[in-house]
């Protein structure tokens, strides 16, 4: 696979900015994403006390990508992004677990009620 093909397949990119920026500030481009991941990830990253600013924008409505900006006090922006993604993933795992157990419990209750009604 050539570099060009690799670049096309890549979902995550970093916008190259001026040299005055250090690694605490980064703008990431997430291809194929919108408010769904943008806003939920922004919320979780903003919950990190290391973060000075976090926001996202959709540069053009017909381009399927978002610009995701992170500025921190004293931590590499990539590290903060990684933590945000991990936190969101773990949170979703708990939501899924809770939802599935609630559904199982509801079905159990309904089944018991059905048995009672029959007898």
């Amino acid at each position: 696979m050539t570099d060009e093909q690799d670049q096309k397949k890549r979902r995550l990119e970093v916008i190259e900015t001026g040299t005055e920026e250090n690694e605490n500030c980064r703008t990431f481009v997430m291809h194929g994403e919108d408010h769904t991941l943008g806003n939920s990830l922004r919320y979780l990253i903003m919950k990190n006390p290391q973060v000075q600013f976090c926001g996202y924008s959709i540069p053009h409505p017909s381009e399927n990508q978002i610009n995701f900006r992170i500025q921190t006090y004293n931590t590499p922006a990539t590290k903060v992004l990684k933590k945000g993604l991990k936190d969101l993933n773990i949170m979703c795992q708990h939501v899924l677990k809770t939802f599935e157990s609630s559904v199982a419990e509801y079905k159990g209750r309904k089944f018991e009620k059905g048995m009672e009604d029959k007898s």
């Binding site: 979902r11 997430m30 991941l37 992004l81 990684k82 993604l85 991990k86 969101l88 993933n89 979703c92």
Partner: peptide
């Protein structure tokens, strides 16, 4: 949503 997180984690 979990899949999205994992995709970008592996990208990182």
């Amino acid at each position: 949503l979990m899949g999205k997180c994992r995709t970008f984690l592996s990208e990182l």
